[in-house]
């Protein structure tokens, strides 16, 4: 047994690919059977990751989730900031300023409003529930933008891992809510043209949730919403650990 654990730790990254594959496969199954595809597998697997980290934390009393379990140390690399930021940057590919210009100033306005309002609402709720330092408030505000902007901001500002976990959870809740809520709310907010989809993507961000929600509303709208949502992630990663953080420090 000993030598197997040593082997797994030595080849940590590869083993982490395998385990992550299992988590995602399992989550896809839950998505298809239990929710009839209503909640996308990606949101379930991220939630699953948090659940596993919780139980691993109870077991080891450590701070690094399942990376503290023997044999699972590779998760620290795969789930660490380097790969994460690298993968996030890559999602910007295919985004084009020419398309965003087509919605005109309203598309850009929706992006800025979407980031700022989500951030402010998240930070205010965190403050009301007893969080007081600027780094943590900024991280949770960023998590209210998306489950990506939260941890990127948290790492950049040096927030603690439990605060980053809250920011991910908030982002996952948002993603699931947008996924389920979009087709329900669509007729009431006039979500039926490419232009309205772009405004919607700009206000909501959370690319996976917006894409899944629009797919359930009208698949033709997906590329438009996903386009502005991608810009939202970029804008959030740009603004949260900078302007919005400074603003937060100035207020407190």
């Amino acid at each position: 047994m000993e030598y197997i654990i040593t082997f797994l730790d030595k080849n940590g990254l590869v083993f982490a690919f395998l385990v992550t594959g299992f988590i995602m496969y399992f989550s896809e199954g839950i998505s298809k059977t239990l929710t009839r595809g209503k909640i996308p597998g990606s949101a379930i697997s991220i939630f699953m990751g948090l659940v596993l980290a919780y139980f691993a934390g109870l077991e080891t009393m450590g701070k690094k989730g399942i990376a503290d379990l023997p044999g699972f140390s590779g998760f620290e690399l795969l789930g660490g900031p380097m790969f994460r930021d690298f993968a996030i940057v890559s999602t910007a590919m295919g985004a084009s300023f020419a398309i965003i210009k087509k919605t005109g100033p309203i598309g850009v306005l929706s992006l800025f409003l979407g980031v700022i309002i989500s951030f402010a609402a998240g930070a205010i709720i965190a403050y009301a529930l007893g969080i007081t330092d600027a780094e943590s408030l900024t991280t949770i505000g960023a998590g209210a933008c998306t489950f990506v902007v939260g941890p990127v901001t948290g790492t950049a500002l040096g927030a603690s891992s439990d605060i980053i976990a809250i920011s991910i959870a908030a982002g996952v809740v948002k993603s699931i809510l947008v996924t389920i809520g979009t087709p329900i709310i669509a007729p009431y907010i006039g979500l039926k043209t490419p232009q309205s989809a772009m405004i919607f993507g700009g206000l909501m961000g959370t690319t996976s949730g917006t894409a899944a929600g629009l797919a359930a509303t009208d698949p033709k709208l997906v590329p438009y919403g996903a386009m502005t949502a991608t810009f939202y992630t970029g804008l959030g990663c740009l603004m949260c650990p900078s302007v919005l953080y400074f603003l937060m420090r100035a207020i407190l």
Binding site: L50, R84, S118, S160, I166, V173, L177
Partner: peptide
């Protein structure tokens, strides 16, 4: 990668703030 990232967070300590995560996810939407 995001799944792997969420699985290495200190969720045990964050758990008591579950309500915060829920509200910070719902109200901005």
């Amino acid at each position: 990668i995001i799944v792997a990232m969420s699985s290495v967070q200190n969720v045990r300590v964050a758990f008591s703030n579950g309500l915060l995560a829920l509200l910070a996810g719902i109200i901005p939407v």
